[in-house]
Write a protein that binds this DNA or RNA. Structure first.
Lengths: 223, 223
DNA sequence: AAACATAAGTAGACGACGTCTACATTAGTT
DNA sequence: AACTAATGTAGACGTCGTCTACTTATGTTT
């Protein structure tokens, strides 16, 4: 069960290899079933939405029997948990890498980069990002998922705190600053992703994605 | 079909009357079935989550046959659409009333109040708020839902534009300001609602809800 | 190398669900 | 009073999640 988490970390969901790195060991034992299931699940969510996701459908797509996925995921909720766990890990890596890429030790520069890294990842992994925020994911969160979430959250919190020591919004309580700082990339990404919500802003077409992200994040963490 | 929308507007989801204002006309014809279905649906989402919502379950709870709901909602997606339509209407009313309650014509004061009204509503109608943002709701949005969403969006856009004419962030393109302004209450509410995400901020317990909202919104729309 | 526990797959069954069709009952109009 | 539309019922169908019992491969122990 715990090693599932490491599996997830290793899989790159966004790379769409043709569903099987499977070094077909033989016809009976599939080889990479659990990671193939995760990969296919994200594809389905992307293409047909979360309510079109079924364990049986995945099994059929992968050419295994309908009950095979049960050997790797206790139930559907735990599949969602595993997907979300991998997503939070990716999101944390993306934000931290963005901070490191600045090669700066200015907390504001780093925090700004993290905000942009967050949005960039969210906009390029839309289905996965939506899954992270899905109510039923949080509801049935297992320990792995909770841990991954907390790790992400801690890495952001540290950066916010550092920037506050640098003087950014230093007169506002930390939890408030933290909430505010997290809310902008999260809310903005959600708004941009939602077809309903961005439908009334065809204005956005005038911006390059990177430019749009840049301008929004600058309003939260000026540099 | 169109009149469904008016039904929704009339129902107050948050009032938990014991499921039936039904003036039981007789045993066969239920009387208020469609609005009772909506009401019960929101209760279920609140208590057991969206994936526990079933048309058959609602029918059983209301004491009608399993196929009765199909007379009022073409399918499950259209039930979700109707729920969301009512939600957006409530949300728009809540924000506009908050603005009017200031009895001010200062655009910044009004916009600030709208942000607080938004968050207040979201935190007090959590299940409904989550449903508004549910990916499968947007995916199968019908015309009523789209219209309700656009009406909400327009009312916020107007307020943002007015505040920009007043000098707030006047050097930033309107779509960016709009995105930023919307992102904060939406993201903040989402973060506060998510049990996973707010778990690492037990810090929030030190704040009254209203005080918390006040401080966060002041960071987006200072007055 | 043989024996054996365990991991990983299969087939079949069960109840719940969404949705369709055919039919029954009531409400409203003419 | 008769007709039509709205609203509810019963039954059926295919899909789904999940459980159980069984089968096959893997890998460790002896």
């Amino acid at each position: 069960m715990r090693n599932l988490c490491e599996d997830v970390g290793a899989v790159n969901f966004s790379e769409k290899t043709p569903v099987s790195n499977q070094q077909i060991q033989n016809a009976y034992h599939h080889g990479n079933l659990s990671s193939d299931i995760l990969q296919r699940a994200v594809e389905i969510i992307d293409e047909q939405g979360l309510d079109a996701l079924s364990l049986r459908g995945i099994a059929k797509d992968l050419g295994v029997s309908h009950a095979a996925p049960n050997r790797h995921f206790k139930n559907k909720a735990s599949l969602l948990s595993a997907i979300a766990t991998g997503g939070w890990m990716q999101l944390r890596d993306a934000t931290l890498k963005a901070a490191d890429a600045t090669a700066s030790d200015n907390p504001n520069v780093r925090l700004n980069a993290m905000g942009r890294g967050f949005m960039r990842w969210a906009l390029r992994n839309r289905a996965l990002f939506r899954t992270l925020l899905h109510p039923d994911v949080a509801r049935f969160a297992d320990d792995d998922l909770t841990e991954a979430m907390l790790e992400f959250s801690a890495s952001v919190s540290d950066a916010v705190q550092a920037s506050q020591r640098q003087g950014r919004l230093s007169d506002v309580p930390l939890p408030i600053v933290s909430l505010f700082t997290n809310a902008v990339p999260m809310g903005a990404a959600l708004l941009l992703i939602n077809p309903l919500l961005s439908a009334d802003h065809p204005d956005f077409e005038q911006f390059e994605e990177e430019e749009l992200i840049h301008q929004v994040i600058n309003l939260v963490v000026p540099i």
